[in-house]
Design a protein around this nucleic acid. Structure first.
Lengths: 384, 384
DNA sequence: TTGAAAGCGCTACCAT
DNA sequence: ATGGTAGCGCTTTCAA
């Protein structure tokens, strides 16, 4: 009948000290492996601690030890997108090596949620922040960032903040994709893009425009569908494009969500336009989809390293890193012109009677900004 | 030349109070929206706070307010697997509605890392724990769980802990998959499975065995490849199976990682075995892959709700929930017998000249454990 | 090698 | 409606 809450109280250092018959300070020293403690005493304290089920209270420690916090907080927009998950994984690995813990909050693209998460981190005095922002402005971060809470923005720049950033070379990447389509002879090129408010989107669209303009090909705005929110929206957008009287002969999708939607729309159809996307994804190779490949793992790693420098006290002006992208050509953008006749449909899980396998290695070219070693290509999955 | 660290100190409540010309306690009340504060006073305090860039210190608050913590910690094994990401997203949504924040730590399948993350949460006195464990035992959690830190295990049971659990009906799901293969006339059925130490794996393999045994079909252990770690391993395993003198006519992959690997191995080959996997995945429909579908979103949601009850003080014995799975039949398991001739290869991104589209709606049957409403089917993506 | 006391920033309790 | 004081669990002086 005694409240079950009682059992929920964890023992304190004081209780451990009492049980071991030493002062609280000695217990503290023993448990933290500090010097100047007799081995026998230390053992006694440790035994008492584990007997009582002691677990140090980092709230108290960090409060007292000021700053402290061996935690880095990260906000990502969409956990179900492996792209962000890979960034987080790589960042966590780097941070973990340095003894820091990475805690991730998922905003699900909701600006209000992002703000709550960041506040939660800040109010708990994390050592630093890694953010993939879904917001256009960051008023709450202004004073913090200026005050010096180390912060690194990933994938999407913070227009209103002077913080370190790691971005992809979106413009060059998109331009490379469209250049490739142009080389294949396409002139009616469509685009399926996500929220127009995203800087990444802007840059990619700018790349498309530049490629077309420089090639002297008219920019067919009527074939650009933007402000698409997710894969479902992209699927609808693609269907829409296909019903036009003069549908595009090639479509560029601005990220992996858009690509998935577009793929769904063309699944099991035969009047396919050529397809190329920004962001490599796990099954792109299986599906034979050409992409502008980038390395989320590299982004996470670089971001974490930059953050570490700041956490360690590094100062100096904010930096912006642009990571190179790479064009990976697969079957989806091989035009009839280049094909030597015959059947080169993607046969994946559809079963059929025996037939000869068909080689056709992907063509790969490196493009865009420098600053990074020639990243991995092809399969497009992290390989640590 | 003054240390830049100085600027990093945030103002305290005391400073805000001083600036507003009130006592520290009044400032506290005003900032927390408590009663008994004159509106004018309250405004003055709030102004002072924002002018100084005040941000409350939750370390201090939670330390004092005891327990407290409006944070739930979650550990997942693999962020890049959308399956876990979906669980986390759904759990975060439920928790967020209730005013709790979800912080996620990624263990990357490393037991030591999992332990560090859980310790990190516990030492910061989180309100509860959601864990997808990569460990076989959980000594560090024994005393905590018994002491009453609310904990819910997801997807994988905690053999050594009496905690709430939300699991899939793995055995029935796997059995349904193999029953389906058997109905299609297959007798040489192979399996590609992940780490044998995982309870999920055991249960799924048990389901395979039961289906075969009940059908009086010999269990071909030589066609079972297990302890595969990732998609790359699965790819190799699949290649291995295909080079056998008498390769399996059908292969069951025990999770989405294994499925991806298997798909890579059979990509662009024509001598494909039938393929069915456990876990639906985003592009399964596009690829025409049959699967035993489950709902990670439902798992996350149920888990979060169970945790909430405990956090709110709910007691009682630990509960185990089994979520139903569903068989989704697509092209990859349609045998020649059933096909009405003609070409039904999966044409996805391979381009070719016009031809008639081919319908072929997925056949769907519900199977296995109850407890959940007939979940979504087909596309297999969350739709909140 | 060990201990006593002060205090981190906040809230709870009791005054006024 | 407002303020003082004690104290959360720990670490940091400074002594012993």
């Amino acid at each position: 009948m005694v409240s079950e809450k009682v059992a929920r109280e964890l023992p304190t250092l004081r209780q451990v000290a009492a049980a071991a018959g030493v002062s609280i300070k000695t217990a503290s020293r023993a448990l933290n492996g500090e010097a100047h403690v007799a081995p026998a005493t230390s053992d006694r304290v440790k035994e008492a601690a584990s007997a009582l089920g002691y677990r140090r209270n980092l709230l108290a420690r960090d409060l007292r030890a000021h700053a402290g916090a061996d935690v880095v907080g990260m906000v990502i927009a969409d956990a179900a997108n492996p792209f962000y998950a890979d960034i987080a994984l790589a960042a966590g690995a780097v941070l973990g090596e340095q003894g820091l813990l990475l805690f991730i909050g998922v905003s699900d693209k909701d600006p209000a949620s992002e703000e709550r998460i960041i506040s939660g981190f800040l109010e708990r005095r994390v050592a630093g922040l890694l953010v993939v922002s879904s917001r256009e402005d960051h008023p709450q971060l202004r004073s913090e960032a200026e005050r010096g809470v180390p912060t690194v923005f990933l994938d999407r720049p913070a227009r209103d903040l002077a913080v370190d950033e790691v971005l992809f070379d979106n413009l060059e990447g998109a331009r490379a994709a469209v250049d490739h389509l142009l080389e294949q002879g396409h002139r009616r090129i469509g685009v399926i893009g996500d929220l127009g408010s995203l800087p990444t989107h802007h840059e990619r669209i700018a790349g498309v425009r530049r490629a077309l303009t420089e090639a002297g090909v008219p920019v067919r705005e009527d074939l650009f569908v933007t402000d698409v929110h997710d894969a479902d929206g992209a699927e609808a957008a693609m269907r829409g494009l296909l019903t036009l009287s003069a549908p595009p002969t090639a479509v560029f999708t601005t990220n992996n969500r858009m690509a998935v939607g577009a793929l769904r729309a063309v699944s099991r159809r035969d009047d396919l336009p050529a397809l190329i996307g920004f962001d490599d994804f796990e099954l792109a190779e299986v599906l034979g989809m050409s992409v502008v490949s980038n390395s989320p793992a590299e982004m996470g790693e670089r971001g974490a390293r930059m953050l570490l420098e700041r956490v360690r006290g590094g100062s100096g002006p904010s930096r912006r890193v642009r990571l190179a992208t790479e064009l990976v050509v697969r079957r989806s953008t091989v035009t009839p012109l280049e094909r030597s006749g015959g059947d080169d449909r993607a046969a994946v899980t559809g079963r059929r009677s025996p037939d000869a396998p068909r080689p056709e290695p992907p063509v790969v070219r490196v493009r865009s900004g420098a600053l990074s070693p020639p990243s991995r290509r092809g399969r497009g999955r992290r390989q640590p």
